[in-house]
Design a binder for these strands. Sequence first.
DNA 1: TGAATTTCTTGACTTTAGTCAACGCTTTTC
DNA 2: GAAAAGCGTTGACTAAAGTCAAGAAATTCA
Lengths: 201, 201
Amino acid sequence: MPHSPPNKIDTTIFLEELRKRVTVPEGEFEKFLELWEFKKYKRNEFILKAGEVPEFSIFVLEGCLRQYIVNEAGEESIVYFAEERHWIGDLPAMRSKSPSAFNFQAIEECKLLVISAENWEKAFIDFPWWAQAHLTGYQKWTSMLQQKMAEMQTHTGETRYLNLLKEKPKLFQRVPQHYIASYLGISAETLSRIRKKLSRD
Amino acid sequence: MPHSPPNKIDTTIFLEELRKRVTVPEGEFEKFLELWEFKKYKRNEFILKAGEVPEFSIFVLEGCLRQYIVNEAGEESIVYFAEERHWIGDLPAMRSKSPSAFNFQAIEECKLLVISAENWEKAFIDFPWWAQAHLTGYQKWTSMLQQKMAEMQTHTGETRYLNLLKEKPKLFQRVPQHYIASYLGISAETLSRIRKKLSRD
DNA sequence: TGAATTTCTTGACTTTAGTCAACGCTTTTC
DNA sequence: GAAAAGCGTTGACTAAAGTCAAGAAATTCA
């Protein structure tokens, strides 16, 4: 069975995810990879706190992060979970060097590939396929967010819970239940009651 | 007072909006404009119905459109209002020639600039500044949608109403109140009661 | 202009979800 | 291994919002 040489990080899934979106010309991946840096975060460690200027953008090799926002009343609201193979960061804030409104925190121990603001702009010019993949990704994401918004507007918490369970079943095995509740936009108590009710039926 | 020659559409705001985002090289705007077509829609006319493949993407010169989704239960949920100077369309569906999940309807009589799928791809290659503007726009929009999602999760209908009122006051003077309710994710009756309550205080 | 349609409002009632507090259980941490 | 912290559950109560139905007001358009 093949294995990575010691001290060398496994970037297989990174290339796989790029190839899902776009054709990476022969030999360019290595050059592209040089723009990225490896980083490790401990459980519960913050990658970025709201009000800080993001220094890099992220691809998740291993682990799970949450992106959340805290409102005036101090209530947390999770807007995104990034598991392995996901991209996460606040690009508008990073590119404009302005403070982010979001918090980014490792839920588990995380292994990340990160790209600095400077390298991000460079990659964008040097690798046209990267720009392409990026744009297409954002277009889809926007459409998805709009659909999620509509779901939020028309469905009850119970339905949203069932949908998420179908969509990302693995998530429930790795993040605390009250994080799921926050992501669904319901209180932890309500989620607990929903689950109880559903287990009875 | 200057005026446009007869039969020539006024594309001033189109150029203005592009210039807000990016530097348009001298003389390129005219070439770029050739890729776009002028279209007019009557009040309540559909630009696209869910299930159809979008043939073009839109910039609004005059009027106001709504983008909405209908769920399994037949409930409408408005996800976006496009007033003049706004961009609207379902790019992922248009580019992949797959049916859109959204409906696009003119609320008022509308004057639009539209670009076909083919020309969109062409523009994207021929005008690098267009690709740049596009990407930056999508990045910001994604971030905005995430913040709107968080607002949805943590604020009451009343607060969301007040925020929208502050953000887009003109919208309330041109679209029916029950459309606003749908956009806010509350029933028309609830919005009516919120307004009554607020007018008392 | 006037009938038809759409939009908005109100009342009565139900459903959904939030809040606060308490408690048991598990996981960390020192 | 004991204390602390975090997590999930439950009860009692409150608040927010939906539903259904009826009617008033405004708008459209023929």
